[in-house]
Write a protein that binds this DNA or RNA. Structure first.
Lengths: 185, 185
DNA sequence: TATTGTTATACTCTATAACTATA
DNA sequence: TATAGTTATAGAGTATAACAATA
């Protein structure tokens, strides 16, 4: 009824389906492992892992959120949950009293350590076991490439506005600032 | 503290992280598009798409579930939701009165058609745009391989039991039967 | 008894909007 | 006014267990 619908080649379709299936199964398995072994959701694991890597084991809420893709309130929710379990602490930043500094505790590191082996094993056996070294290298290159592309082109609506019917976007300013893939998007 | 922890090579790590990030961002973008354009969750889209491909546009609940990885109740929930919106119908099978046959409706196909272009475009621009044809082919091969591997080796606990501390599970029977990667696992 | 599916229920997660406080 | 974070709240999704009906 309008512009030619975009198409995927047979190879692209196959790649997309298989990619989707793999990531879905892998994610599912990993989530189960994290939950079974460490009572952690995937997001919580990511947060802990980030903190574990961060210098000083701590980060501001905003920086933590960056990349974990959730809403601010979602991060607060998870951080609270982790704090209640004693895996992280939260304290106002001395430098900027508006900020909250989240820091991983020893207990947090323990959980991380407890969970890691199984996590890695799962990834190894599920994702890498059936790939050659060359494949893994190619995969790393491709995914890094795509990932960079995604970071550079923050997916907007990802399916452009429906029929706008009205003005083709007079920039109401405000939005723009979101610059680097902030929390929500 | 026990057996040598498994390790990932630097390349594997990079591949895993990038893979994870890509699949996460892609999934997020696709979910947004499906929701914006067709008020569909990803699962609902998958169900509709399956039905759309199925001969006669219909399938048994059990067969539908197979591969979508959710619990039976979860499928019932989604099927109900789709039925309420008139996108599918549900009726007992004539052959086996225990079974429920789910069939996509014309309205269901319309939604599918409405959602498809944006979906494909998103996949194209987010996943494939930065890859060469050769890359796509390699990706398809790898993912198909891994996917086959995963289907062959249904991820069990994916992270062996913790220290049981108590009774190591006296099998209350019942459970075992789940045989072929059924719904739940 | 085993299988198919639904219901009841509880819980986790996410998102929006309103709000507080600092800058 | 803009930024950082929290709270209140509502809604979607998932899982478990109990259940009903058919095979």
């Amino acid at each position: 009824m309008s512009t030619q619908p975009p198409r995927l080649s047979a190879t692209e379709l196959a790649a997309y389906f298989a990619f989707t299936e793999v990531s879905s199964l892998l994610r599912h398995a990993v989530e189960k492992q994290l939950k079974d072994v460490g009572q952690l959701s995937y997001v919580q694991f990511q947060l802990l892992a980030r903190l574990g890597d961060a210098p000083g084991g701590s980060q501001r809420m905003t920086d933590l959120a960056d990349g974990v893709v959730y809403s601010r309130s979602g991060l607060t929710y998870q951080a609270q949950s982790l704090e209640e379990r004693g895996l992280v602490t939260r304290a106002p930043s001395p430098e900027d009293e508006r900020s909250t500094i989240v820091a991983i505790t020893a207990a947090g590191r323990e959980v991380l350590a407890k969970v890691f082996p199984g996590h890695i094993e799962a990834v190894k056996s599920l994702l890498f076991e059936s790939l050659t070294d060359a494949d893994v290298e190619a995969l790393a290159r491709m995914m890094t490439q795509v990932s960079g592309h995604l970071r550079a082109n923050p997916p907007r609506s990802a399916g452009r506005r429906k029929a706008p019917t009205s003005a083709p976007a007079s920039p109401s300013a405000s939005r723009a600032s979101s610059a680097r893939g902030s929390v929500t998007d």
